[in-house]
Each structure stands twice: as C-alpha cells, then as structure tokens.
Simulated scan of single mutants.
Amino acid sequence: MRVELDEPKCVAAGQCVMASPEVFDQRDDDGVAILLEEHPDESLLDGVREAVAICPAAALRLVEQ
C-alpha cells in the first residue's frame, strides 16, 4: 500500500496527524500535512485508513499496489 498526499488540497486541519501520527505530521509554519511514511507497515494501515476517511479536504489517498 502507498499513501498519497495532495499538498495543495490540504487545509491544515491536523486530523491525519491525530489518526496516524506515525505516518503524518504537520509543517510548523503553515500546518500543512507532511507524509512521513509513503509505504506504511501493515500494522499502521487502520490509522491511515481512518486518516483518509476523515480528511476534511480529501487530500489523502491510499493506493493498493
């Protein structure tokens, strides 16, 4: 699985960081999301799926390879 972040869509809500802090962080200057782990471990996928589902800007995507 691969996580995709569309930075221009991000509204800096931080929901992804709360759902999966091992995979997402936020920039200090503007709060836009940062992808820490493009290919997260299987054990982190539940949190990533939650982050994708609750992102208010639909800026996240989980791609099955």
Rank of each mutant, 00 (worst) to 15 (best):
M1N: 04
V3P: 14
E4M: 08
E4K: 14
E4R: 15
L5G: 09
L5K: 07
D6F: 12
D6E: 12
D6C: 00
E7L: 14
K9R: 15
V11A: 12
A13T: 03
Q15A: 15
Q15W: 14
C16D: 01
C16E: 02
V17W: 11
M18L: 13
M18P: 00
P21G: 04
P21Y: 11
E22F: 02
E22W: 05
F24H: 08
F24R: 02
F24M: 06
D25E: 15
R27Q: 14
D28M: 05
D28H: 03
D29I: 05
D29R: 05
D30I: 06
D30H: 10
G31K: 02
V32K: 14
A33E: 00
I34F: 02
L35P: 10
L36T: 06
E37N: 12
H39Y: 09
S43P: 00
L45W: 14
L45T: 07
D46R: 09
D46E: 15
G47I: 01
R49S: 08
R49N: 12
A51V: 01
A51Y: 04
V52N: 05
V52E: 04
I54D: 01
I54H: 04
C55L: 03
C55D: 04
A59R: 01
A59Y: 07
L60Q: 07
L62S: 13
L62E: 13
L62H: 13
E64P: 00
Q65W: 06
Q65K: 07
